[in-house]
Design a binder for these strands. Structure first.
Lengths: 210, 210
DNA sequence: ACTAATTAATCAATCGCTTGATTAATTTTG
DNA sequence: CAAAATTAATCAAGCGATTGATTAATTAGT
């Protein structure tokens, strides 16, 4: 035997995640997913009830990954707010660039906002990240190392938005940066450090009381 | 007579733009669009050849609007680079928030990147805006009022990305800002000035040589 | 033997698109 | 100017293909 039994559902989820990410929810047909996964079409409904249920399952599998990464960041008592923020940015860029195609899928779904039950679930996940960042900003302000008139919500929009702008469209990003962002070597060795360095420097000058 | 004759195509484009923006390209059916526009289904193909041709037509109609707004910005000799950038940000936020649903449609299409002919066309439009910004940044650097180690591409990603993050999902933005961003009064009187002020302040501290 | 897993076959619905025919508008012709 | 010829605009109907989903039959696991 090559395959374990309980891995079947996970394998379907793997394929579904990739196909959804590649072509979008609407254009991804259940036949396409089942075909690539090497299972019968009816198995999708057998396991996940419906196509939308499959999408939800894809998202739910990642929730705990997101949550755990986030929660472990801001709770270190040995760092001040700025150090936490730097570490946050590092982890965020690392984590989300690796799963950039999933991140795209997530953004597309929340920006379309058609499946409201799912949109609510997704925005809650995102707001989990957002609120963790907000806690750090608030700590920085109350401890006096961040300017007290900092626009926290906009600064958060800048962190997430800047990253999204680079990672959501490899097409556009490659034109902007004049490099192929699909090149894993370039992404890992140059672009990721560049994004991190830039965001830290940008926020450093904006936030910190000199 | 209430309707002019040549306005028929424009009316279809108006409806198509709204429907595409609301539900996305895939989920928008030609029957839905023709029905809402009050024309026979076959007219869409008669006028625009295909559903994708209709989408292209929707985009093409906006190209000159984008182009003209951009080109008139950076060519004022009476301003220095920073003043130009401030004016750019103002115009950009004003223009793109009004057409936020169209902006969403455009972003979704370019982020999906499935219709490559269209994606190329769109990214060219966007790069037109981007390059106009870049020109201003370069001018600021060469005249010595911007830091010469400024990461221009990333700064551009911040301007566009921050705006996108706020306007692409009313759902998420409303949660983040704890206000209903669909409220036109709030958007016009508070949020738009807030975005402008924030972006200017953020870039001021990052860019300007003190 | 009995439950769970898997399959092939099929369902109704909807998709984008095309067709052939009809009407309205415009141009050509005598 | 008016009849004829041509073009443009509009319509109902339906095509083939594909969609997500379901059924009933079969296989595998315990």
């Amino acid at each position: 035997m090559e395959k374990e039994k309980t891995d079947k559902k996970d394998h379907i989820l793997d394929v579904a995640e990739r196909v959804f990410s590649d072509v979008g929810y609407d254009a991804a047909s259940t036949r396409m997913i089942s075909g690539e996964a090497g299972v019968n079409m009816a198995m999708l409904n057998y396991y996940f009830g419906s196509k939308e249920g499959l999408l939800v399952a894809v998202f739910e599998r990642k929730i705990e990954v997101f949550r755990t990464v986030i929660n472990n960041i801001g709770n270190d008592e040995s760092m001040n707010a700025w150090d936490k923020l730097e570490k946050c940015i590092d982890s965020f860029i690392d984590k989300v660039v690796v799963n950039s195609c999933f991140s795209r899928l997530m953004n597309r779904e929340i920006w379309l906002g058609r499946r409201s039950e799912l949109t609510d679930k997704l925005s809650d996940i995102i707001m989990g990240n957002v609120n963790e960042f907000k806690r750090i900003f608030d700590e920085g302000i109350s401890t006096g190392i961040f300017h007290k008139d900092t626009d926290v919500e906009m600064a958060i929009a800048t962190i997430f938005g800047t990253k999204n702008y680079i990672t959501n469209s490899t097409h556009l990003a490659s034109k902007l940066l004049k490099r192929d962002v699909n090149d894993a070597e370039y992404m890992e060795q140059e672009l990721k450090p560049r994004i991190k360095k830039y965001l830290k420097q940008l926020l450093n000058t904006y936030l910190l009381v000199k």
